[in-house]
């Protein structure tokens, strides 16, 4: 099976903080790939690396066998037309109506006549069930509707790859269900490849064909949902079952509880020492 995205042994730091230490994963073409992991493990960073907004310090990120980081500006922009990203907040342009938001990429990158453009936008809005909401401003939409409108915008140019950044975060069960269905349907009907970054295990496991679990700056497991359910790693099992304590500790790294409460004289004199 062909991979549309391949990440090979990537190291990435943000300032002093190490985000990745040797991450490798594949995204098969035409499938829904779920990327899961605890909060703060750098899932969004991965999407930005694929989109070329960030550059890895070591290793390679390949999109359709081309290394994204080495592309020049115009090639990068050409490549980006083939992918799209659904941001956590939707990122709709607040000064444009929903209709104009969806029309935006078409107006920017195509020279379609107005009548065809109108038709295309209506089709995209219909696909997400918002054809009636075209004249609303983004501020008038509910969170779930805003995300669906953003989804319509991100499929406007018929990309090969859609990256969903936390599509389910902060959604009520109904709009969550709508989004799950939409992602699955769009992937099937438009022949897309989807990457869903999320920590909603249940939803991801239900739509993904391929799941990657990240933790501790590395990929700990990848495979089909069924394979992961039976994975023997304790970390994977902790994540999938949602246990509070385990290989990912409940406690932030600290000295022992006993020492912290009783050992004042041994405590390093660091607190408040920066003045």
């Amino acid at each position: 099976m062909e991979n549309i995205v391949e990440v090979k042994d990537v190291y990435f730091n943000r300032g002093e903080t190490k985000i990745y230490e040797g991450v490798s994963l594949e995204v098969p073409r035409g499938k829904v790939t779920g990327i899961m992991g605890p909060s703060g493990c750098g899932k969004t960073t991965l999407l930005r690396l694929i989109g070329g907004q960030l550059k890895a310090h070591r290793g390679q990120v390949l999109f359709d066998k081309v290394e994204v980081a080495t592309l020049g500006r115009s090639d990068l922009y050409e490549t980006r037309k083939r992918m799209s990203m659904l941001f956590q907040s939707g990122a709709l342009f607040s000064e444009l109506t929903v209709f104009e938001n969806v029309a935006f990429p078409l107006r920017e990158h195509t020279k379609l006549p107005e009548s065809i453009l109108q038709t295309v936008v209506k089709m995209k809005l219909e696909a997400v069930g918002l054809r009636g909401a075209g004249q609303l401003m983004p501020a008038e939409l509910s969170g779930g509707m805003a995300r669906r409108a953003a989804l319509a915008r991100s499929i406007a140019l018929d990309p090969e790859l859609i990256m969903y950044d936390e599509p389910f975060a902060g959604q009520d069960p109904i709009s969550m269900g709508v989004l799950v269905t939409l992602i699955k349907e769009l992937n099937k009907t438009l022949g897309l490849t989807s990457i869903v970054v999320s920590h909603d295990i249940h939803e991801v496991m239900s739509i993904a064909d391929h799941v990657v679990i990240m933790a501790n700056k590395k990929v700990v497991a990848q495979g089909s949902p069924e394979a992961l359910q039976n994975h023997d790693s304790a970390l994977v099992q902790q994540f999938l079952s949602g246990a509070a304590d385990g290989p990912v500790p409940f406690h932030y790294a600290a000295k022992t509880y006993h020492e912290d409460l009783l050992g004042h004289e041994n405590a390093p004199q660091k607190q408040g020492g920066s003045s």
């Binding site: 037309k81 990122a91 920017e108």
Partner: peptide, 11 residues
């Protein structure tokens, strides 16, 4: 609100 990032990703 990631509108700038979103523009970049829309090339």
């Amino acid at each position: 609100t990631e509108q700038l990032s979103s523009l970049e990703m829309m090339a």
